[in-house]
Write a protein that binds this DNA or RNA. Structure first.
Length: 479
RNA sequence: GGUCCCAUCGUCUAGUGGUCAGGACACCGGCCUCUCACGUCGGUAACGCGGGUUCGACUCCCGCUGGGAUCACCA
């Protein structure tokens, strides 16, 4: 039997990184085994599902390089297009006495729950309608009819249901703990646990890979599989990802969506590598290409305990992938970020490459890189007053002037070695050390005390811009 | 509260009865150096507690404690 896994997000918001990790693991498992990976859209909740969310999910997955063998835009993989199938299955269960109508109102149920809680009993459904007679051909609730009953699954009262999980191991649930859950709402919409079972069965999912928040649902789903005469799939429940405070990862922890990381200048390789590496390991290896991830992945190497999201490590990985890129590649990728930051995008790709090459080891994301490139991308640089006070003193005006005129004699696109020669001449003439001249020059050219090597900066800036900034600084000293 | 899951440095983890408990991020220090980085060398830092089993437990069993998930006409 060929392995088939699925990822089934509901299009009710952004694609969350904790959530997409489950998808990633499911995808890795399928690819590792040469199997199929299905993207299914759990949109039974028509109220909350939106087209924008769906588009974001699809785009996020594509950006990460997680591809699917079946799924959108094929409508067959949307739950909303499978309602007939769910109705048919529910009607069958009803006929066979494996499900029954429940006439309790939401208000009554709510009252019972509160009552049970007060009396320290389990809050589950008490089975009020379980044994009431009903006509075997009773109609299912439907959207138009607005019937005043729901359909509940008649779950076995005795015995136990065992979940053999590929990551969590063996878990036993007493059937007496499991109440009769609603499989069809009074508005004719099937509920999650029911629709999921039918989807997993119909699409021939062999391994259900998902977050361990679904573990308590699993015995119920197994029972539904059995009631339908179907064999349940294998399960792999992955531990969840928490924020730095140990609480479930959410908006208040900052960026949580895949898009947020993309827009913050992270690379898909870094995010993928990071997500894979939390909750899964392969010895001491930290850096994994997609190819390696697929080759090494397995549930036996997945941890059972929840992980805490560590933004610093993600940043480090991103830095790794940034350094690994060629300047040409980086130059291409940085352009949208230059644009977004409001700079005029330089037309000369070779120049952008040169610029990027000097910044590559100083920025951890594309956004940081553009921030750092301000003095390259704009002539509107502001000289930091503290830096000026420290390095742009009257006695440096003369050496700066000498340097300016020497550079003025160079060709526009002088190389680093020519710049170095000029520096050495000026240094010798004034009996200065490199540090004494480099810092003032740095302040004059970049506005601050931190930048790439000063020869590189000049080589990238070019003769005219360098000389202009030098002269401006000299003028400022004189003033 | 019931049920289920989990437990090695601050964080991600290696470890499957005998290790000075290893690696990575972060942090601290040295070196490199025109600044900042990069790089490099080194350092601080962990088996939650209590019982067993065993010649010997981080590793196996039980209990405790602590965390988490879940108990909807959401998914």
């Amino acid at each position: 039997m060929t392995v088939c896994t699925r990822y089934a997000p509901s299009p009710t918001g952004s694609l969350h990184i904790g959530n997409v990790r489950s998808g990633l693991f499911a995808w890795l498992y399928a690819r590792h085994n040469g199997g199929r990976f299905i993207l299914r859209i759990d949109d039974t909740d028509q109220e909350r599902s939106t087209r924008e969310s769906l588009e974001e999910i699809v785009a996020s997955l594509e950006w990460l390089g997680i591809d699917w063998d079946a799924g959108p835009p094929d409508r067959r993989y949307f739950q909303s297009s499978r309602f007939d199938r769910y109705r048919e299955a529910a009607a069958r269960l009803l006929r066979e006495g494996k499900a029954y109508p429940c006439y309790c109102t939401p208000q009554e149920l709510e009252a019972k729950r509160r009552q049970a809680e007060r009396e320290h009993r389990k809050p589950g459904y008490d089975g009020t309608c379980r044994d009431k007679p009903y006509p075997p051909e009773l109609a299912l609730p439907d959207r138009a009819g607005g019937r005043n009953y729901t359909i509940r699954f008649r779950s076995p009262r005795d015995g136990q249901t065992v979940v053999e999980d590929l990551v969590k191991g063996h878990s036993v649930f007493q059937n007496s703990e499991l109440d009769d859950l609603i499989i069809f709402r009074s508005d004719g919409v099937p509920t999650y646990n029911f629709a999921t079972v039918l989807d997993d069965a119909d699409f021939e999912i062999t391994h259900v890979v998902r977050g361990d928040d679904h573990l308590p649902n699993t015995p119920r789903q197994i029972q539904i599989f059995r009631a339908l005469g179907l064999t349940p799939p294998a399960y792999a429940h992955l531990p969840m990802v928490a924020g730095p405070d140990g609480k479930p990862l959410s908006k208040r922890h900052g960026a949580t969506s895949v898009f947020a990381y993309r827009d913050a200048g992270y690379f898909p390789e870094a995010l993928l590598n990071y997500l894979a590496r939390m909750g899964w390991s392969h010895g001491d290896q930290e850096i994994f290409s997609k190819r390696e991830l697929i080759e090494y992945f397995g549930f036996d190497a997945c941890g059972k305990s929840p992980g805490i999201f560590n933004p610093e490590k993600l940043l480090w990985l991103n830095f790794h992938y940034l350094k690994e890129r060629t300047p040409a590649q980086l130059a291409r990728e940085v352009i949208p970020f230059i644009e977004r930051r409001g700079y005029q995008v330089p037309g000369d790709m070779a120049w952008i490459e040169k610029m990027v090459a000097t910044l590559r080891e100083r920025a951890k994301t594309l956004v940081e890189l553009v921030d750092f490139a301000h003095f390259y991308l704009s002539d509107d640089i502001r000289i930091d007053p503290k830096a000026a006070a420290k390095f742009l003193k009257p006695e440096i005006a003369q050496p700066l002037g000498a340097l300016a005129s020497a550079i003025a004699a160079l060709p526009e696109n002088c190389g680093e070695s020519a710049v170095q020669q000029v520096f050495e001449q000026v240094l010798a003439r004034f009996g200065m050390k490199l540090g004494q001249l480099a810092q003032p020059v740095r302040v004059a050219l970049t506005g601050g005390t931190v930048s790439p090597g000063i020869y590189e900066v000049i080589a990238v800036l070019g003769r005219s811009r360098t000389v202009a900034r030098l002269n401006r600084a000299i003028a400022q000293i004189g003033a």
